[in-house]
Amino acid sequence: MKIRGVLLIATALIVAPFVVEATMGNAWVRLLDFALLYVMLALGLNIVVGFAGLLDLGYIAFYAVGAYFYALLASPHFGIHWPIWAILPLGALTAGVFGVLLGAPTLRLRGDYLAIVTLGFGEIIRIFINNLNAPFNLTNGPKGIANIDPGVVTGLPIPSTILYYYLFVVLVLLIVFIGLRLQNSRIGRAWVAIREDEMAAKACGIHTRNVKLAAFAMGASFGGVAGGLFASFQTFVSPESFGLMESVMVLCMVVLGGMGHIPGVILGAVMLTVLPEIFRQSAGPMQQAIFGTVVLDPEALRMLLFGVALIVVMRYRPAGLWPEQRHRREFVAP
């Protein structure tokens, strides 16, 4: 039974891009690729927010670090052209180091205060990237870095979006594997213990500083991998991809899906990437059909419905759409 389930999921994952391409076109495969990038980001943030309970609003900074790390080492900007398999692990490491650097000053903070400070750090990274084109042109400023080397072989009969899809799926599976293993481990338990009661965790002999920094580093390294993939996929990076709204979006994915529950977080990330797009494409024609004209701008309507959806979910499913079984019990009256 279990093997059959795994086979079914594996088959679905393998054929999905071809089916999507044949029925809906290449743009939707591209969207699928983006969904997978967000799954990685959400799983990384889930370690910090879901497991360790540290509300991080600047998470996208690590995505930016990973993306620029890739861009600098595989583009004409410095004339360096390293292969992707060499850059990604180093990018993960670099982002992890940034996670520790940005995490260290915030260790004594929690809740809202931590959120505000991490939000500030996230913005600082973005502003740095935006301005580091002088005196030494490191990031090329607001113009961004273009002509980044693609991460997959191009010029094959298979579209590159499908190749990226497989690359992303492999890395998502790796991240899920790591996440699941961490969850059921001594470190994973220590994270949850800190989330539940920091003082009691200390009294149990947990070195809370190191364990928190480990959470920041782990989460950031996932973000770094996703960032590197993003850069190779887009072949272009610029500071505006890493704004506060992106951090908020990833946090929404984690919260909406079910904090601390890996399948829930994946669901949240896929839904929040794919549904708005479906909506954007159908809202215009639908209004045309009903009213004979486009009454409301689909973009504005999209944000409106997004807000309504958030409120509805938080009202009726406060633990998220797919929370961990035992947490779900908490929210149901006995």
């Binding site: 293993r181 961490l182 001594r186 470190i187 338990r189 002999g205 947990i206 782990m218």
Partner: peptide, 12 residues
């Protein structure tokens, strides 16, 4: 926790 060792790599 206090009497055991496993770190991140060990967990993975």
């Amino acid at each position: 926790h206090a009497r055991t060792q496993a770190g991140i790599m060990g967990a993975i």
